[in-house]
């Protein structure tokens, strides 16, 4: 069965240290380059590595018209696949006229959002011969600058996906593997 793998992206960041007694959190960089090239001892806590489970995805925004999204986020902790409604409108995706309200429990509390349901034809660029129909919730609360979020709902009808931490010289933080069912 067709499959592909994609490295898990990572990068290092510098979260402001707000520990009591620590230096006052200044948002400014020191000298950006100097800090960045400091000895690796700087890699100590707090957590500085940001891991991103992104893959590229193509979306059929109109019949036979595909749009390549550079990054969608695979979120096995999300039930729904969520895209920005504003993003969709701007790119000509015809949202259904009927909306509904969803209550979402988020990390910052409960929010009520207006959403539209749509089954969207999508495909991974690595396997263009395997398009599938993804049930997407287009949310008015999802900013257009937030990457599309791919949750579990109906993705598992088509794919088995695995997060694999095996080391590889070109994927030091592991990779994702997608197998068609």
């Amino acid at each position: 069965m067709p499959w592909f793998r994609h490295p898990i992206h990572y990068r290092l960041l510098d979260p402001a240290n707000t520990t009591p007694g620590a230096a006052r959190p200044l948002f400014s960089e020191e000298s950006a380059v100097q800090v960045l090239l400091a000895p690796t001892a700087l890699f100590a806590a707090p957590i500085r590595m940001s891991l991103r489970a992104y893959v590229p995805l193509e979306v059929e925004f109109a019949p036979q018209q595909w749009l390549s999204s550079r990054r969608v986020m695979i979120d096995s902790g999300a039930g729904l696949s969520t895209f920005s409604a504003e993003w969709a409108r701007e790119f000509g995706i015809a949202l259904p006229p009927r909306s509904c309200r969803l209550q979402l429990d988020t990390a910052t509390g409960r929010v009520s959002v207006t959403v539209y349901d749509l089954d969207l034809n999508v495909r991974f660029p690595r396997l263009r011969d395997c398009p599938f129909s993804l049930a997407v919730v287009f949310s008015e609360a999802h900013p257009p600058t937030t990457p599309p979020l791919i949750g579990l709902h109906n993705l598992l009808n088509y794919w088995r996906f695995t997060f694999d931490g095996s080391f590889d010289p070109a994927a030091a933080m592991g990779h994702m593997r997608f197998d068609t069912l």
Binding site: S50, L51, P56, S69, R70, R71, T145
Partner: peptide, 13 residues
């Protein structure tokens, strides 16, 4: 490719 890159200091969700 269409994207909205992470801001330089965005840690993630």
């Amino acid at each position: 490719q269409f994207d909205a890159p992470d801001r330089p200091d965005t840690f993630g969700w």
